[in-house]
């Protein structure tokens, strides 16, 4: 990173700002939709599941926390997949390291998460949920999820250069994944044998830690440990895969 950390971060932020501006260029409410949309989805889902009885204090809060953390992961991985291919002209030709393309997509998803956090806090205030010190765990949790997501995004971006089929696989897999991680319905509703698998799924762990921290004011050391391990391993593998394949990518593009 001879170019310096400051310039690095500056470029990432500029790319992100440009993407967000472009996304909301034609709409009236603009960036406000980043806050409004999760809120509306929450209302819809609460309505849909209003007939069910769950063993949780507040379904809207349950849903929105889980959904926000899930959304960051899925938008980041899906948009990062095409990051290298989209920027094939600039790959390794500019002074900046090529990781920047993936990182800007991840950062965009992260910024959207921050907007959705506004919605979360509004919901917390509205439902008068008691906040304890465990809310700090929520911020730590987001950080680790960011690490985890970055690692996976690197891997996907690298694979996509060589094998475009992964786009379709991921599209279908993501639809089924969202149902498998107890975002829409609490895990108690799942059959026993599936509950066991779900508990080890990182995409369940991160939202669950967040929900426990905010709604219940509790934490589970085992889960926190898994949170860290998944993040570190994922990031390490991601960067490793990218570095190993970097030269092959240049050849392919």
């Amino acid at each position: 990173m001879e170019y310096g950390l400051k310039q690095y971060i500056f470029v990432i932020r500029e790319l992100t700002v440009r993407e967000i501006k472009r996304k909301y260029s034609r709409s009236m409410l603009g960036v406000f939709w980043s806050v409004l949309q999760p809120f509306l989805y929450m209302c819809v889902m609460t309505l849909v599941f209003s007939g069910f009885t769950f063993n949780i204090s507040s379904y809207p809060a349950y849903y929105i926390i889980g959904f926000t953390l899930w959304t960051m992961f899925i938008t980041s991985t899906t948009t990062s997949m095409t990051a290298f291919v989209d920027n094939r002209n600039l790959f390794q030709k500019s002074k900046l390291p090529s990781e920047i393309f993936v990182l800007s997509r991840v950062y965009t998803a992260f910024v959207n998460l921050l907007f959705s956090c506004v919605t979360i806090f509004v919901v917390i205030l509205f439902f008068r949920i008691k906040i304890t010190w465990t809310i700090l765990i929520f911020f730590v949790d987001i950080l680790f999820e960011l690490m985890f997501t970055t690692g996976i995004s690197y891997i996907f971006a690298t694979i996509y250069v060589f094998n475009r089929d992964i786009k379709f696989l991921w599209k279908n897999l993501s639809i089924i994944l969202v149902h498998m991680i107890a975002v829409l319905i609490p895990i108690e509703r799942y059959p026993e044998h599936i509950q066991v698998y779900t508990k080890y799924n990182p995409l369940y762990i991160y939202p669950n830690i967040a929900r426990d921290a905010i709604l219940n004011g509790t934490y589970n050391v085992d889960e926190l440990l898994r949170m860290v391990i998944w993040a570190v391993v994922s990031l390490a593998v991601g960067i490793l895969v990218f570095r190993i394949k970097e030269n092959d990518i240049v050849m392919k593009l």
């Binding site: 094998n163 379709f168 897999l173 149902h179």
Partner: peptide, 22 residues
């Protein structure tokens, strides 16, 4: 993509199988 045209059929098939399994 490697499978090319086949994905038009494979993609919905995969989706249906996963959804129904769930």
């Amino acid at each position: 993509t490697n499978l090319g045209f086949l994905w038009n059929i494979l993609s919905p098939l995969l989706y249906m199988l996963l959804m129904s399994n769930y």
